[in-house]
Amino acid sequence: SLTLTVRGEEAVRRWYKWAQAHNLEVEVETHGDEYVLHIK
């Protein structure tokens, strides 16, 4: 499992696509303009 902090929706989309390509689940938490992604 992997936890990432990114800024901006574009980065979130990029990681989301990456995770889907690897059959992984993604949980997204929003903290202001930062997003915490939990990839499992």
Rank of each mutant, 00 (worst) to 15 (best):
A21H: 09
H38W: 07
V28D: 01
Q20T: 11
E25Y: 13
L4I: 15
T5M: 10
G8W: 05
H31N: 14
E27C: 15
D33V: 06
Y16L: 15
N23V: 03
E29C: 11
V26Q: 01
G8M: 04
R7V: 12
I39M: 06
L4W: 03
R14V: 07
I39L: 07
W15Q: 00
T30P: 13
L24K: 04
H22E: 04
H31W: 10
L37H: 00
E34S: 11
T5W: 06
K40R: 13
R14M: 12
L37T: 00
R14L: 11
E9N: 06
N23A: 07
A11G: 05
S1K: 13
D33R: 05
V36E: 03
E10R: 09
E29M: 08
T30V: 15
T30Q: 15
R14Y: 13
G8Y: 04
K17D: 14
A21S: 10
E34G: 08
E27D: 10
Q20D: 07
V12G: 03
G8S: 15
L4N: 02
A11E: 13
K17N: 11
V36A: 02
L24N: 01
Y35E: 02
V36S: 03
R7T: 11
V28M: 10
W15T: 02
H31A: 09
K40G: 08
G32E: 07
Q20L: 13
Y16E: 14
V36Y: 06
W18M: 02
R7A: 07
A11T: 08
T3H: 11
L2A: 04
V36G: 01
I39F: 14
H38E: 04
T5Y: 09
V12H: 02
A21R: 08
T3W: 06
H38R: 12
Y35K: 03
G8F: 05
Y35Q: 02
R14N: 10
L24Q: 02
W15H: 02
L2G: 04
V36P: 00
D33P: 06
G32T: 04
R14C: 15
N23L: 07
E10N: 09
W18Y: 07
E25M: 12
V28R: 02
R14G: 06
I39R: 00
L4R: 06
R13S: 07
E27F: 14
Y16R: 14
H31V: 13
V6K: 02
E34H: 14
G8E: 05
V28H: 04
Q20M: 13
V28E: 03
A19D: 00
Y16S: 08
K40M: 10
T5H: 15
E9M: 15
S1W: 14
V26C: 12
R14I: 08
L24E: 01
L2S: 04
E10G: 07
H22M: 10
T5N: 08
L24R: 05
L24D: 01
G8T: 15
H38T: 14
K40Q: 09
V28K: 04
I39A: 01
H38S: 07
D33Q: 09
Q20K: 14
E9R: 10
W18N: 01
E10I: 08
L2F: 15
Y16I: 15
E9V: 13
V28T: 07
T5L: 11
A21I: 11
E25S: 12
L24I: 06
I39E: 00
T3L: 08
T30C: 14
V12I: 08
L2R: 06
Q20F: 08
R13I: 12
A19K: 00
E25H: 13
E29S: 09
R7N: 07
V36M: 06
L4K: 06
E27N: 09
E29P: 01
V36C: 11
V26S: 01
V36W: 05
T30F: 11
E25W: 12
H22R: 08
E34T: 14
H38V: 11
R7E: 05
L2H: 08
W15R: 01
G32P: 04
V36R: 07
I39V: 05
H31P: 02
R13T: 09
H31E: 06
R14E: 11
E9I: 15
S1T: 14
T3F: 05
L4V: 15
G32C: 06
I39W: 02
A11Q: 09
E10C: 11
K40N: 08
W15D: 00
W18I: 04
A19H: 01
L24W: 11
E29N: 05
R7K: 13
H38A: 04
A21E: 14
G8I: 03
H22D: 02
G8N: 10
N23R: 06
V26Y: 07
H22F: 06
T30D: 10
K40E: 04
A19M: 03
Q20I: 12
H38Q: 06
E34V: 15
N23P: 01
E9K: 12
Q20V: 12
G32N: 06
Y35M: 05
V6L: 04
G32A: 05
R13A: 11
W15S: 01
A21F: 11
V28P: 01
E27G: 04
T5S: 06
E25P: 05
E29L: 09
I39Y: 02
G8K: 03
G32W: 03
L37M: 06
E29Y: 11
W15E: 01
Y16M: 15
E9Q: 10
Y16H: 09
T5I: 15
L2N: 04
V28Y: 05
N23T: 03
L24V: 06
L37I: 14
L24C: 14
E27M: 12
V12R: 04
E25Q: 13
W15K: 01
I39S: 00
E10P: 05
L37A: 01
